[in-house]
Design a protein around this nucleic acid. Structure first.
Length: 852
RNA sequence: GCCCCGGUGGCGGAACUGGCAGACGCGGCAGACUCAAAAUCUGUUGGUGGCAACAUCGUGGGGGUUCGAGUCCCUCCCGGGGCACCA
């Protein structure tokens, strides 16, 4: 038997699986279904190690569940719209369509070389009209259902990418892709009403039991639900009140000012006749941009001269300021300031010498002496200085204050969200066209469904910035569907996050002439296990949860939550290297000489940076195609699963991949070169087994049990460790009673258990062992519960809590014999001597502690 | 500043509900095979002391609960992530 040839073997089985259609999924109501999905890739050109990790994890789950009898759906596709295609078109004169489909072709080949158990017949690409026409249909349905609106608002404008961005796509005041400082522009844009679902999106997080706590928390923070009250402050000399939002209506008696946003309607009105205010507002608008500036930005205010009348105290008034720290976008754009119990208000009050009246008394404080110095008191306590609220705890005081406001018609209870509506229009070419027409007579007219899809024109150029659709000579000119007069097509396209908000549903019936077939989605959805990076914790996952609700609302789906289980994998890291001139070097450009690291080309020393996420800019990347070409897919997959728990970052190392490679070959030698056949028939099992063979057989069954346990819990690194232990145990078996039978049995089970991780070599070994069915179609092995239970255990014997000896005893030995044996142990007896034993703690099958 | 999650040998990491810390792998050391190397195999590998059996220290620091703490409680330090004029 020759050495293992991964190249021919991997190709052989990939072809076998494909020709047999092993992974083609069909609805089969006689079996439980299991939908495994990994986040689909953006076709950037080549797959990277992050993809290899992501898809390996998903494939292990898919193959394991399939072996366990589930009807598995495991599809793949392409998140194919997006700006990089346009940048490539501009820079290299390749059309986005060609660029994208070429990349898809390359990446599909690379993915196929990994041996993933995918149903490729369901492949979709979001840039294909066969996909996006249905997205246009969904949009029209949403429009009809009132889930979409066109609104004018201050939006985030990215001056580099020449498009607007959603709030979620602005990080620290910069565009998430371009890194450019975003500008606030007032534009007319398309929005999806995600805020209508805010309450439900927040509340339903509790039902997502198989989601990481961290992700649920991030979403909760992002939605930012806060319970409070709207309060109207009447203004002396004006008919209209100023409405504020607060969560601390219990501290209303401590109010010492009102503050409104510089672009609050009242501020804008006053600014018309007050040049100083106008100048102040202009300064605020320019304001500090960027993270650091915001942090230290001083609280600034401008006294409007208006006096607001306290809602509870008719003869009390407070000044109204315009303040730079009040945001028009949140709440009502106006607040009341209670300096004693809010740090920001306190800073402001100190600056403008406004009164600071404490109205909440900490539990142990004395009302006569309690004072506010430099720090506001934001904790719990009891209301005082507060008339009818006096003596009430914070929560009770809030409730009482809200009751009074509602009774007096001065305010209402209100729940506010940080979440804003989802801005979905983008001024870009390479996206799904928004199917509406602008008519001077009829206004905004939806495109009739019979006209779908609205297809992107091919003849576009990218030599000037901006949206090519806007300057296309003919595409945008169209007759109004309603009045037939000349009108203009919408030239904005959808945010690509719209594309990825329903692809998981499309996979259920990928070629349907409707967006989804109810039969198919009702069978397959929800996704049982979704796997991807944490970086999508908010954007993609929140949008998808909303979209699913919207699709239910419009009758396309019958459920609210698309992903029943979510797993977020860690990233793949590597050291980075820098030459003396500061330029980054690829790992293959360096070599190690003893403890030194040098640049191969120059022989000069290299600065080794810390391990961080692989990125092209730092060149600390390893190409999957190279690794698969050198070691094969199984080795790459095994390495991805070994050592690091999948939710943590993984350090890529040459030594690690070598270790995985050695294991593949070791398995091969152990089975193929030794010509072991198996599994042997149960009838051929020898009547007597040597103690070693018996122990090994027990290890086999325990391993089946624990590997299954680990795979169910995503503990892949532990499963690998257990399989290596089994390998060691079987390898050590000598030629005594029954060991040949146990070895054949054990190795066959080992091959089955490792199948989901290293499917090619496992299939090959399974065949070499004489099996005629493929492993992909073989059920998961079962263990014999009788062989799982230990018969003897090693007890730890402690004296005063310190380990002094161990004791081998039958399982469930009685307390008395354990105590007797322990005290008689040669290591223990001298330590106890004649001293009186205070007590003996016996934990069954674990430990004996002799306390002196 | 607030909210999460981490901190265990030279390294990645094990340790189910408090019960033999360091499974498994990487790396190291010694040896076998070899003209030699690679590959492979065998042994060994937390620190300190000892020829040894063994002793002793040891899970970021300090304190506590317990017969017994990597695990529970308090407190501090360090690393990573999220949020941040959100009223």
């Amino acid at each position: 038997m020759a050495r293992y040839n991964f190249k021919t073997t991997e190709t052989k089985w990939q072809r076998f699986w494909e020709e047999r259609g092993c992974f083609a999924a069909t609805e089969d109501r006689s079996r439980p279904k299991y939908y495994v999905l990994e986040m689909f890739p953006y076709p950037s050109g080549r797959i990277h190690m992050g993809h290899v990790r992501n898809y390996t994890l998903g494939d292990v789950v898919a193959r394991y569940k399939r072996a366990r009898g589930f009807n598995v759906l495991h599809p793949m596709g392409w998140d194919a719209f997006g700006l990089p295609a346009e940048n490539a078109a501009r820079d290299s004169k390749v059309h986005p369509t060609k660029w994208t489909y070429d990349n898809i072709a390359t990446m599909r080949t690379e993915l196929k070389s990994m041996g993933l158990s995918l149903d490729w017949a369901r492949e979709i690409a979001t840039c294909h009209p066969g996909y996006y026409r249905h997205q246009q249909k969904l949009f029209l349905d949403f429009l009809k259902a009132g889930l979409v609106y066109r609104g004018e608002a201050f939006v985030n404008w990215d001056p580099v990418d020449h498009t607007v961005l959603a709030n979620e796509q602005v990080i620290d005041g910069r565009g998430w892709r371009s890194g450019a400082v975003v500008e606030k522009k007032k534009l007319s844009q398309w929005f999806l009403k995600i805020t209508d679902a805010a309450d439900d999106l927040a509340a339903a997080l509790d039902t997502l039991e198989r989601w990481p706590e961290k992700v649920r928390l991030m979403q909760e923070n992002w939605i930012g639900r806060s319970e409070g009250a709207r309060v109207n402050f009447r203004i002396q000399g004006r008919s209209d009140p100023i409405e504020i939002f607060t969560t601390r209506h219990d501290t209303l008696f401590g109010a010492s000012f009102l503050a409104i946003a510089p672009n609050h309607p009242v501020a804008l009105e006053l600014a018309k006749t007050d040049p100083k205010l106008k100048a102040f507002a202009a300064e605020c608008a320019r304001g500090p941009v960027g993270e650091a500036a915001l942090e230290t930005a001083e609280k600034m205010g401008y006294d409007t001269g208006l006096k607001a009348i306290h809602p509870f105290v008719a003869n009390k008034t407070v000044p109204v300021y315009v303040a730079n720290f009040v945001l028009m976008e949140y709440g009502t754009g106006a607040i009341f300031g209670c300096p004693a119990h809010d740090q920001r208000d306190l800073d402001f009050a100190r600056k403008y010498t406004l009164p600071v009246l404490p109205v909440i008394l900490p539990k142990s404080a004395d009302p006569k002496t309690f004072q506010i110095a430099d720090e506001a008191y934001v904790g719990d306590g009891v209301a005082y200085n507060s008339d009818f609220l006096d003596g009430l705890e914070v929560d009770a005081a809030k409730s009482a204050a809200a009751d009074r406001l509602e009774r007096d018609g001065a305010g209402t209870r209100e729940i506010m969200y940080r979440l804003r509506d989802w801005l979905v229009s983008r001024q870009r070419y390479w996206g799904c066209p928004i199917p509406v027409v602008h008519c001077d007579v009829c206004g905004i007219v939806p495109v009739p469904e019979t006209d779908l899809p609205i297809v992107l024109p091919d003849d576009v150029t990218f030599d000037v910035p901006g949206n090519p659709l806007d300057r296309h000579p003919t595409w945008r000119h169209v007759a109004c569907p309603s009045c037939q007069k000349p009108a203009r097509r919408e030239t904005d396209t959808f945010d690509t996050f719209v594309d990825s908000s329903w692809y998981f549903a499309r996979y259920c019936s990928p070629r349907s002439d409707k967006p989804v077939e109810r039969d198919a989605v009702d069978y397959w959805m929800p996704v049982d296990q979704y796997i991807g990076g944490v970086e999508h914790a908010i954007l993609h996952l929140l949008y998808s949860r909303f979209f699913t609700r919207a699709m239910r609302h419009t009758g396309h789906l019958g459920l609210d939550e698309p992903f029943a289980g979510l797993f977020t994998q860690g990233m793949v890291c590597h050291e980075s290297y820098r030459a003396e001139d500061g330029k980054w070097l690829y790992p293959e450009e360096i070599e190690r000489r003893g403890d030194d690291v040098i640049q191969t080309a120059t022989g000069r020393p290299v600065a080794v940076g810390r391990r961080e996420v692989m990125s092209k800019s730092k060149k600390n990347v390893v190409a999957p195609s190279k690794i698969i070409g050198t070691y094969g897919a199984d080795t790459a997959r095994l390495f991805m699963l070994s050592d690091s728990p999948p939710d943590r970052d993984l350090d890529w190392s040459e030594a690690g991949i070598e270790g995985a490679w050695r294991y593949v070959n070791r398995l091969w030698r152990l089975i193929a070169e030794a010509e072991v056949k198996g599994p042997p028939s149960p009838q051929s099992r020898p009547a007597s087994l040597s103690p070693a063979a018996d122990a090994a057989l027990r290890t086999v069954h325990k391993t089946i049990h624990w590997v299954s346990w680990d795979l169910d819990r995503f503990h892949f690194n532990k499963a690998v460790a257990r399989l290596r232990e089994l390998t060691n145990a079987l390898e050590e078996l000598k030629d005594d009673d029954g060991s040949a039978w146990v070895k054949a049995e054990g190795l066959a089970r080992l091959v089955q258990l490792i199948g989901p991780m290293m499917p090619h070599v496992a299939e090959e070994l399974w065949q070499v062992m004489g099996n005629t069915t493929s492993l992909a179609e073989t059920p998961w092995p079962a263990y014999d519960p009788a062989l799982i239970d230990e018969q003897r255990v090693t007890l730890a014997i402690q004296v005063n809590g310190k380990l002094r000896a161990t004791l081998d005893m039958p399982v469930d030995s009685d307390r008395e014999s354990i105590e007797t044996e322990a005290l008689a142990h040669p290591n223990i007896a001298p330590l106890v001597g004649g001293k009186p034993v205070r007590k003996i703690v016996v934990v069954p099958n674990r430990v004996v502690n002799v306390v002196l």
